[in-house]
């Protein structure tokens, strides 16, 4: 979406802070129902983020599938379990948690030191002239539809078969 600069930056900072706090809430909140709703907040922020980066079809798919289906399934699974066992061993901070947090922090630090060192804009300049020549007027969603029905037809059918088999298997597991 082509917004003017300050509004775009403000929306980016707002969505980024919502994403950071929401993902901290998913991991750290003691009650799983709160962390499920916090996961919903994170998924919604990611969907708005896709709208900001001009890919509307993926934003709509994210909003429909993640927030509408997966998050509802997870909330259903949380509500299905017994609530009393959640509070038992939350407060103890074991050695494994400390080691894991150290490992994940070092992973994050190594990633964010790698990202600015890589020359991304060299790749952009080598692929840019190609795009300007081939620019035409069909929108992103039309292009995704054309690619899904021509180039990616076999993976599309495979993914539908996988989804059908997974849903039948889920019903067969859950109803016995």
């Amino acid at each position: 979406m082509d917004l003017p600069g300050p509004i775009h930056d403000f929306l980016l900072v707002f969505l980024g802070s919502g994403l950071i706090l929401g993902s901290l809430g998913v991991v750290l909140l003691p009650n799983p129902i709160y962390s499920a709703f916090s996961l919903g907040l994170v998924l919604f922020c990611i969907s708005l983020f896709y709208i900001l980066s001009n890919s509307y079809f993926v934003a709509a798919a994210q909003l429909l599938i993640y927030v509408g289906a997966i998050n509802v399934l997870i909330i259903f699974a949380v509500m299905f379990m017994n609530g009393s066992e959640y509070y038992k061993d939350f407060h103890l901070w074991t050695v494994g948690d400390g080691v894991t947090s150290m490992v994940c922090t070092s992973l994050f630090i190594s990633l964010i030191t790698t990202i600015p060192d890589t020359s991304w804009y060299g790749i952009i300049w080598t692929t840019k002239p190609n795009q300007i020549i081939e620019q035409d007027l069909i929108s992103n969603s039309q292009q995704i539809g054309i690619h899904l029905s021509t180039d990616f037809f076999l993976p599309f059918e495979l993914i539908s078969i996988i989804l059908l088999v997974a849903l039948i298997g889920a019903i067969a597991i859950a109803r016995q």
């Binding site: 989804l163 997974a166 849903l167 597991i173 859950a174």
Partner: peptide, 8 residues
């Protein structure tokens, strides 16, 4: 698919 299998 994973979110259908996992809670089951």
């Amino acid at each position: 698919a994973e979110a259908a299998i996992g809670p089951a």
